[in-house]
Design a protein around this nucleic acid. Sequence first.
DNA 1: TCTCCGATTAGAC
DNA 2: CTAACGGTCTAATCGGAGA
Length: 420
Amino acid sequence: MKQQLALVDCNNFYVSCERVFRPDLKTVPVVVLSNNDGCAVSRSNEAKALGVRMGQPWFECKALAQAHGIVALSSNYALYADMSNRVMSILSNYSPRHEVYSIDECFVDLTGIAQLRQVSYQMREQVIKWTGIPVCVGIGPTKTLAKLANHIAKKHPRSKGVFNFNDLTDAQQEKLLSQIDVAEVWGVGRRLSARLAEHGVFTVEDLRIAHTATLRAEFGVVIEKTQRELQGTVCIDLQEAVPDKQQIISSRSFGNTVTDVAVLKDAMSTFVANACVKLRAQGSHAALLQVFLHTNRFRKDLPQYNPCITVPLPQPTNDSLVVNRWADYLVGRMFKPEYAYKKAGVMLGDISPVGRYQTDWLEPAQATDTRLMHTLDKLNHRYGRGTVKVSTQGAHQGWQMRQERKSPNYTTDWAKVPLA
DNA sequence: TCTCCGATTAGAC
DNA sequence: CTAACGGTCTAATCGGAGA
């Protein structure tokens, strides 16, 4: 039986989450900003219509915002994660085979269901009724076609939020795909679409009927899979189980530039703590640590310095204290006082499950105290992140990111929600 | 010439 | 007055080192 996938994608997700708790914003242009209040990463339809681009630096929009009363909010990831869980939990009832693809998207396997359109409208209705989040549904025999169908559902009001690619005849498919820019295809980004244009491939239909061997030779396997998926052949499977992370990064741009090592080390110990929490949460340990610093790459007038040191850890670990000692040492090694730092971070790599580690024959593994970290995680989970910290964390202020317009955590922290 | 591995590139959201 | 531009992740590919 031919596979049928629905891609359910939330509309303007972060903005929609904010609007659930701020009905007064429903008719106002709204944007949600990235960390550090840097760029617009979610825009209401009104904000899009006014010309705010995805990822646009917010300072570039200030005049426009002033003129049209655009409301800008700092991102509130605790809120979005919780709203996402609610949406995903509803969608999971529609099929045991589903893949949470991102914070606002889910593939749902509807293979064998007769009334695809009805079921899709039902999903839409239920999600908006139970969570307040509007979604669009695209249906197709492959992930790539379901994605494309979703794009059409979003673009054409006539579809009323649901588009089933299977409902088209071959002729209709050809006509529709000839009208869509190839850059809309999942997996075709900026660079690739520019190079494809040089080869005369401008529309989705151009890509679908392109000479496969040439495509493969010029652009690689990835795009060949994409082409086959556009033709209806499944090349990208549904990933039901969430795989363990292969690398874990924790990094931030600073609210202001930092010139003091002590402040850098303070920030770094927070990054280490966050990365190790994630590592322990998936029951892994890491054998590789990378630590990096960045100056402000947008300041062409200032000297640039982007040091990065990678060290193999002598023994895989997920102990924040152990990793912190390394990170602290490495920051000291890299630091040069003549630069102004704007960003820093850590990366944990060479990750494997705890307990599947082949102990060194020559150097017997030293027992690390897993109880300490376990207790620390439990306390921080129960009483909030940062309740128990490494001593260097928080000793220095001055690196924290700007977040001037953050909404309350409506769904997870009632204590801070103002009562109407 | 082959293989391994780290770095780079490109993509997604 | 000026400066104000995110964060995490994966897979494929590239290119140099060593076998």
